[in-house]
């Protein structure tokens, strides 16, 4: 269903009074729930719920060859698919731009933050490396799939165990999973600010997101920004962008806390 314009007008009016429909503050996430191992066949997986929004993320690995410009590093391949089951507005067919963008933004959040030690995914320099696939599927879209994808990717990677490398066949042995992935202890956070009317808010629900004029996704680790994507066409003043950065410096700690709590709780 498409959100009627009148709802948008009321959402914006509320924001002008400092309020959101569900009573949250502008910098407040809905409850984040992360569950591990939603799929046994994956090397690692996670289900992330942010309010009613839900994504599942799975990690698969196989043996590949390195790229010419990174002969001693493994490969990261991130993809996202917004499944038609996740709302009544998605059409069947090949992935639309929204899916592609979620995959690419999540890829950059992971890659640029230095979360993954790609050298630790090298088996034989110049010949054999691990391919690390991060695949994201939306199950229910109630807004903010972008940040849900980022959180899910981090959790799934944290929980993943690498398949054994079989020296004889030169292939991955999926019957034995042991080692954790070579990851940094600090996790990256994907945090998206949406401009609705005259205000920036985070974690919009579906209705709020429908009236988002532009969004800024900040990928960061320990408060250091490692990736940005401004999406949609509305312009932003340099001053307003500065304010977003100031708010991000506070909010990332809150989000990190709730993610780490969930990851710790479910640690094997």
């Amino acid at each position: 269903m498409i959100t009627p314009k009148i709802n948008g007008d009321v959402i914006k009016k509320y924001l002008n009074e400092g309020k959101r429909f569900d009573g949250r503050g502008f910098d407040e996430f809905r409850e984040i729930i992360i569950e591990p191992n939603v799929s046994k066949k994956a090397e690692g997986s996670a289900r992330v719920k942010i309010g009613k929004t839900e994504v599942i993320v799975g990690i698969k690995m196989d043996i590949g060859t390195p790229y010419p410009d990174s002969m001693d590093k493994g490969n990261l391949i991130t993809s996202a698919e917004i499944l038609p089951m996740s709302s009544d507005r998605i059409e069947l067919g090949k992935p639309g731009f929204e899916s592609i963008e979620i995959g690419r933004i999540t890829d950059r959040v992971l890659r640029e933050s230095g979360f993954i030690d790609f050298k630790g995914l090298c088996i034989k320099e110049g010949e054999k490396v691990w391919n690390l696939y991060v695949d994201i599927y939306s199950i229910n879209d109630d807004g903010n799939l972008l940040d849900a994808a980022g959180i899910g990717a981090v959790a799934a990677l944290k929980w993943a165990r690498m398949p054994k490398y079989d020296e004889e066949t030169g292939k991955a042995d999926y019957h034995e999973h042991r080692d954790e992935l070579p990851l940094d202890e600090n996790v990256p956070i994907s945090l998206t600010f949406h401009k609705v009317g005259d205000h920036f808010i985070i974690d919009p629900n579906r209705e709020e997101e429908d009236f988002s004029e532009t969004r800024i996704t900040l990928g960061s680790k320990k408060g250091i920004i490692s990736s940005i994507q401004k999406g949609e066409s509305h312009q932003v003043s340099v001053e307003d962008f500065g304010k977003v950065l100031d708010r991000m410096e506070v909010v990332w700690k809150e989000v990190l806390k709730s993610i780490e709590k969930q990851i710790e709780k479910n640690k094997k």
Partner: peptide, 29 residues
């Protein structure tokens, strides 16, 4: 940027503190 210096597009890859990022945006403007 638009002619009056509003941001219409921004991406980033790398590592930078929020304070230095603000400086970089001014430089670009």
């Amino acid at each position: 940027f638009t002619g009056d210096g509003k941001i219409t597009h921004m991406q980033l890859d790398g590592k930078i503190s929020p304070a230095q990022l603000k400086e970089a945006v001014e430089m670009a403007r």
